[in-house]
Amino acid sequence: MSKLFDARGLSCPAPVLMVKKALDDSSHQEISIVVDNEASMENVSRFLASRSFEVEVVPKKGEFEITGKANILAGTTESAGESGKTTKYSASAPSSTSSGSQPSSLSNNDLSAKETQQKIMVFAATDRVGFGDDELGKKLMVSFIKTIKEMGDDLWMLVFVNNGVKLTIEGSLVLEDLLQYEADGIKIMVCGTCLTHFNLLDAKKVGETTNMLDIVSSMQFADKVIKI
């Protein structure tokens, strides 16, 4: 039996908090909540969807009854018993393609994928590997960039700062490899301050121009950061 919560007369975020508390206190297979404004309807629906509930909204004279059923089965069809007034709601996950300035959206990925797969960030603050002979260092960097694809799906993001941004510009020996990585869905972020510093903003040929805030918050979401 579904438990009914009354959030009429409350405005955001109170209705969401009411549902959150209910779910935190005990597990519910089914939960219903009545709200009296559209903003709360959207927020509560979105919250339930984010907790893997299948959500149905029935509008009733300016009020909305929202029902969440646990255990989402992908592709379930509209239940036949309901009239045409029912609308199904599923919170669309933020698209990772347009997430240039919000790398955090990647944490919303499918949970099962998250468990088996780690997110590795490679942070390149130079265009050569190690100290000693610079010519050797540059060769090693080319080899490094070409070889990291062996990390497979775990390779999540490449960040280029300081001299590292020179790997992303016209004439770089690894430009083709980086373009392929980008096409394969690996995020490539290039420090805007650094490009500006070297006057290379227009020469950059791959990746998204980014800022320190993006880099730092991405580091926080990465499972592993490899600095080179």
Binding site: V16, N43, R46, A91, S104
Partner: peptide
């Protein structure tokens, strides 16, 4: 430019009226 965690909170329904 967007502050960190904003996307997560919005996906969870923490959007002000």
């Amino acid at each position: 430019p967007i502050l960190p965690e904003t996307v997560e909170f919005a996906s969870m329904g923490f959007v002000p009226s």
